[in-house]
Amino acid sequence: MKNVGIVIVSHSPKVAEGTADMVRQMVGEEVPLAWCGGNPDGGLGTQVGAIMAAIETAWSEAGVAVLVDLGGAETNSEMAVEMIGEPRASRIVICNAPIVEGAVMAATEASGGASLKDVVATAHELAPA
């Protein structure tokens, strides 16, 4: 797959899966997509291992844009990127954007073959100033 991949990381598996459903509705199979959410006990939370696996699933040589919800999702995603390490780490960007809107807009941009930089920029436009 040449298009940038999208990863959705929410504390809630329902939010993550629902967001992924909305992305799929927009872009079908044009964009590599993966989501994760929840802690190992079935509660709300995020896990580094699950995020690493999701990035692996959605991996594209063009890079991966990660959409997160609250603080822990961001910290865990940053840790996951660091643990994945180079050469992939520099092609993974954690977006500063609302998770649902950011994922849908980023994926739509990605489906047209946009670069990681442009995909991320599209998501960042949604961030509150």
Binding site: Q47, G72, T75, N76, E78, M79
Partner: peptide, 15 residues
């Protein structure tokens, strides 16, 4: 700890 704690505490205590 990074892989099992979850939340922001996993990366923080792990680090």
């Amino acid at each position: 700890l990074v892989m099992t704690v979850g939340g922001a505490s996993g990366p923080l205590f792990g680090t």
